[in-house]
Nucleic acid binder design. Structure first.
Lengths: 320, 320
DNA sequence: CTGTTTTACGTTACGGGTAACTTAGCGCTT
DNA sequence: AAGCGCTAAGTTACCCGTAACGTAAAACAG
């Protein structure tokens, strides 16, 4: 007991005793078992469960980096879960991670399985849903409105005179942020009298190569497409390479637009038309909201991190 | 007690009782507290601490993805620690994570602070050191020999006739894998009678922009450099853009070589000269070794994952 | 020097799950 | 009907850190 007091610097011990305790700690290489403290219910753990779809997508890696750095600065640790964009994986992960009595959870996406939702509600711990902004979150939400983001791109492209446009992305079992961008995009394009031809690559990840062959398939099916909107920048780069390889002049013959504004976009001599979101900041903000709730500070339950359309030079410009 | 037996499917209960227990579990939304089990020492936790320098570097994100997916398939979770390439951060993180009684640890790098090494030795849990292969690991090691990787690139470049070469990287307080690549590279180049001019960007991360301005500084100081080796591909892309922007013809006027073979390299119409390592596989292998040790299977303590030099087209080729 | 307060340290109990042991209850045998 | 074996279920103790409480000794006041 005295040792416990010394280690927690709680007071109530003499300097002599303190020295003796610390000497023994050093001699034995003693490390306190934090499990016991949390288990006894004296305090909550310093775990925060963080579910992320995958890390192959650079944007999620940035989000995670933002989360873990910020949590770390408060002495908290991330318990990672790569849920591969499936609600089933997420549910299993939630069940497991809740059994470890985490201080809170940060989840990517607003859609959860019914059972997962039950568990989350019953858990009584702070929960931050990130990525797509959720006006009625389980607890807290931070992200952007993906529908609006897609809508803005659709409006931008139609304002440049594009009318027959294509979309290349991957297919998903459940609705997600990319689906919402597509919905917003279609609404804007169709509202302006245009039409969107969709090409969804089945059973594939939203990376460079599917962007390449998805473009090939799209153009084979419909060769009057003037401009293509991609699920993300990686796919857009793939499409760009396909078009350039086929001798098409971008943006004269065909326009290319992505989403996410990857840092590597600056490698290119011309800027990819895209949509910028500060992914690192999104992660940091999620962790800050979590910490605010844990320390009892007031927090707004919704935080729109905002996005910025990058006009770029892979679509026509207004004067052309 | 009976409920505990039912939930663990241990036997020793009637079907009727089982049904009653499960009904109550469902009604109450009961989730077992795994902390109690681990705390009581009946079994080890399913946490594995994973320290990674940062996730901004795509290669580490891939390693982590490999680790977490594989651990997840065994029902284990990663507790993340972003140690920012500093031994001090790593030591603090190790202390914290050990107090959570993890099943094992996966650490990036072979260098640890003396106190960290003590704690690791005393912990008695499996430890996998990844990234640079360590012939005398604390416990297990998986990675590549970075010295050899740098050496091979040096030999390759000198075999193409390059003699005045440059290196652009970041500076580090402590030796790390990049330092070893540089050492190997210098040894090969100097062994072949050439010389290496180094440009280390201080206090910066090994990303695109430092590659850009590091190249500018290097060429300003020494303009007869025929070829530049970069700490990684991101920096090499930055250098490439600087050179192209200055009107230099790559590879006629200057050669560019990176390390890591980023997937995005295929965006370019010509392949970056680099060194390929299967980062995902490295992570998976680390997790497999961890699991093998935890389940008592025999494991070799060292595993060389290997690398492959990518000749690419950003350096002269042999016939030129 | 007595009575009161303060300081330093010790003791007990608790948290939730489970190993190890005990008890109750049932069916079967002879 | 007594005895045995088996199954189902209950009881006790433990893991380790700490809140709450207890106690002895020192410090202080009057």
């Amino acid at each position: 007991m005295t040792a416990s007091r010394v280690l927690r610097e709680e007071g109530g011990y003499s300097e002599k005793t303190r020295a003796k305790v610390l000497a023994q700690v050093d001699a034995l290489g003693y490390l306190p078992n934090r499990l016991a403290t949390v288990f006894a219910g004296d305090q909550s753990s310093t775990f925060v469960g963080v579910s992320i779809p995958d890390l192959g997508n650079e944007v999620f890696a940035q989000v995670l980096e933002g989360i873990d750095r910020k949590l770390g600065s408060f002495g908290y640790q991330s318990v990672l879960g790569l849920t591969q964009h499936t609600l089933h994986e997420e549910e299993n992960w939630i069940r497991t991670v809740l059994s470890w009595q985490p201080a809170g959870l940060i989840l990517t996406g607003r859609y959860h399985s019914p059972r997962a939702t039950d568990m989350l509600r019953n858990s009584g711990i702070p929960i931050v849903e990130i990525w797509d902004l959720n006006s009625s979150p389980l607890d807290m939400s931070v992200g952007i409105n993906h529908f609006d983001s897609g809508f803005d791109m659709g409006r931008y492209l139609t304002s440049l005179g594009y009318s027959d446009v294509g979309y290349v992305g991957t297919s998903h079992d459940t609705a997600n942020a990319a689906t919402e961008r597509l919905n917003g995009f279609c609404k804007a394009v169709e509202g302006a009298g245009g039409a969107v031809v969709k090409q969804l690559c089945l059973h594939d990840t939203a990376t460079f190569y599917p962007g390449f062959y998805g473009t090939e398939q799209l153009l084979a099916a419909k060769n009057n497409v003037e401009c293509i909107y991609y699920q993300n920048d990686a796919m857009a780069f793939g499409g760009l390479q396909y078009c350039v390889g086929k001798g098409l002049n971008v943006p004269i013959d065909i326009g290319i637009a992505g989403w996410g504004d990857l840092p590597i976009a600056s490698v290119m001599n011309r800027r990819l038309t895209s949509c910028h979101v500060s992914h690192l900041k999104l992660g940091q903000r999620a962790a800050e909201m979590m910490m605010a709730r844990l320390t009892g500070e007031p927090v707004n339950s919704c935080h729109d991190i905002g996005f910025r359309l990058i006009p770029g030079s892979t679509v026509r410009n207004n004067d052309s």
